[in-house]
Amino acid sequence: MLLDYDRMGWLKIALLGFTALVAGFLLLPVVFIVLLSFGSSRWLAFPPPGWTLKWYQELFADPAWLDAALTSARIATMTAILAVAIGLLASFALVRGQFAGREILRGLLLTPMVLPVVVFAIAIYAFFLRLGLGGTTIGFVIAHTVLALPFAIIPVATALEGFDKSIEDAAIVCGASPLEARLRITLPSIRIGIFSAAIFSFLASWDEVVVAIFMASPSLQTLPVKIWGSLRSDLSPVIAAASSLLVGLTLALMVVTALLQRKLRT
């Protein structure tokens, strides 16, 4: 009866209490950082002696922060587009293709997800130094696309595996060209997968720290690099303000995802 929610008695109470504690633990830093960003203490005293918006003013007054945010947004957008496009093509081949070694190739394409990022970071850093791509937007986008590709392939391939190919075949029998059938029948059916792929690859680049630390140049800094640099010097509340905006962005993404998924499902 350990899997009967209604029949677990005190055990359920204990486990629910523990679950609530863990949820609190997961929520704590996020809530805390948002509260602190409005606190007036430069030394991050908590509870704050008063409330203020000055850290946000400081944040927006410093063009380096805005610059870094725009750089991140640009790189993450390009990465997401590239990763989804390449991942979509690759997923069709991996799911539908009839060739030996498919599993091995799938493993190869997913390896960047499991290899410690620091290894890839120094490898691509050295490589781009030779090619003269270090510290360039294109270098960032390429490196991030490698890292984002698994996050684009997995949801699309999963959606594709769940899609009944005979529906596509039926469209072809009805006179559609294979390409047309794919574009008009299959793609709309796996749109939730594609959408997840886009979000995940965007986040993979937007949040990426390690490669960015190596690749960044004084003239090209992403937001995580900027935060990293500030963190190492001091724990200024301005970082809390920047972080709170990132939390806001995450929440917005979650809401959009939830709404879109609901809409797409119907």
Binding site: A23, L26, L27, L28, P29, V30, F32, I33, L203, W206, D207, V209, P224, I227, W228, L231, L235, I239, A240, S243, L246, V247, T250, L251, L253, M254
Partner: peptide, 15 residues
């Protein structure tokens, strides 16, 4: 869980 997972890694560590 999703909120915590999707929140920027550095943000969480900073907190």
């Amino acid at each position: 869980i999703i909120l915590s997972m999707w929140t920027n890694l550095l943000t969480r560590t900073y907190a």
